[in-house]
Amino acid sequence: MNEHDNARAYWRATLRLVTGCLIVWFLVSYGLGILLVDELNRFSLGGYPLGFWFAQQGSIYVFVVLIFFYTHRMKKLDRKFDVHED
């Protein structure tokens, strides 16, 4: 595989990862925290109505985990396609 093809394959893999992460990002905040909030509020998490918890707590925790997951997977991709720094 020449360098050009390798770069293209790396970019396709990156886009797949980013798309996957953004789907989770969207589902947890806009899906669970906004669109489905009333349905989820029928359940509760401790003293929190579940939808309210996602909107004011859960989505933020998921965002943090998501960025570190992305960082970790990108590091692997960088090595796999041999485009990593140093």
């Binding site: 992460c21 953004l22 990002w25 925290g33 004011q56 933020i60 965002f63 960025i67």
Partner: peptide, 16 residues
């Protein structure tokens, strides 16, 4: 919640 999610979710976009 719009402020809580809006001002944190932007970092996911920034990072990705």
């Amino acid at each position: 919640s719009v402020y809580l999610m809006g001002w944190t979710g932007g970092y996911v976009l920034l990072a990705l």
